[in-house]
Design a protein around this nucleic acid. Structure first.
Lengths: 127, 127, 127, 127
DNA sequence: GTGGTCTAGACCACA
DNA sequence: GTGGTCTAGACCACA
């Protein structure tokens, strides 16, 4: 279900978060879909249960998933109104950084914009 | 010269690195320009000399600056041939992540592409 | 495990690096072997943890070891393709210097070549 | 006469030392040849006079050159008997390190030995 | 003056 | 427990 790289500089709990988010964005995981329990997932991807637990807690805080006691964990209904200015600012800061690095690596503006379009298409599964 | 936010989650030494890179990209710092000594900068931005030193060492490893023993530290000539596929892959991975987050935050593709163009204009100062 | 000479002109962190490299080359440390944690090694060889940490970070950058967050540090799989012309040039420059010094010290060519053979045998443990 | 790289990690005074030694080894500089004064050389290669001075002091300590007050600095007669065990040990240690690095870079034993022979031929000018 | 190395020790994120 | 970052400050080689 998920593929984790324990050697990556990206924390494992964030890899889990991002991959679940990505699957939601792509429409692979849909609202009310059940996701594996902490134990299941942790044995599946051979990761410390604490790590999976942390990922789930963060995802819940972000409103991506909901845990229902005794029943399991599910993809939450998205609440678009909750979009915060803070998130947008965060995205802009990160984008600026990426553009800076891309610029350094000699990537042309048009190429970068094409990549943006490509990834949007990838994540368009939701609509 | 630089503005550091000690509360940020981004390590201080990386903030220093990024801001210097940005100034080079914008053309504010040019090839052979001298940058402040470790001590100078550390007192200026109220940060431990070791932290500045770490930033400078990383920048040197990346080929952004060169230090000349006992003389100081200078902006290096860029070596475009050194651009590695690795860098490009890194940029793509990060961009994908940013697009994912932007998508979540409800930012439209066109808006994101405009931002890309905007930042490119900002960093185009070099040419 | 390692023997450090704090009086040497060679920085301690480089002594650590070289000895670990040597143990890998000799086959004493093998791929996926765990090496001591920063704290362990630093108490063992009576050196500041920062110094060990610096050595480990450099080794990681060189691809000799990998660290897995919160788990520890391990000998990496070697990636022979990464061998760069730069490394070879560096070896040649250093060898030239050593030969120059040897020549000055009155060491005969054949003796020096024998030593090369001898050290190769020492480091051949890997195969 | 000498070519200095101020960006190198090798201290400038050592670059000066090594190049003079090399020229002696190759027979370009011969016993009793006059070498430039500190001032001359420092303006020629655009280096701080202190740096040249340090190089000359070290070379004198090693017996490579002699300074005669008011007359200038000259290549000394070599005193082969002065060869110290210490020097030989130093060469062996450095050679070991170079072989280790060469081994890492995938250089074959025979290749390294050929290089040794080659450099010996270069420095054979003296004989 | 300039950067490099090191100690001593704190706090934090992560697993 | 494990490594990463940071402060405070010392000492050294080099130019």
């Amino acid at each position: 279900m998920l593929s984790i790289d324990p050697r990556s500089r990206e924390p494992i709990y964030r890899q889990i978060m991002n991959q679940i988010k990505e699957q939601v964005a792509r429409g692979i995981l849909k609202v009310d879909d059940k996701i594996p329990s902490v134990r299941e997932l942790s044995t599946q991807i051979v990761v410390n249960p604490n790590t999976v637990s942390k990922a789930y807690q963060e995802l819940e805080r972000e409103g991506i998933i909901v845990t229902m006691r005794g029943k399991g964990t599910f993809i939450a209904e998205q609440v678009p109104e909750e979009i915060l200015v803070k998130d947008i600012e965060s995205v802009k800061t990160k984008l600026k950084q990426v553009v800076l690095e891309g610029h350094y690596a000699g990537i042309e503006k048009e190429v970068m914009q094409d990549w943006v379009a490509w990834y949007y298409k990838q994540f368009g599964g939701k609509s």
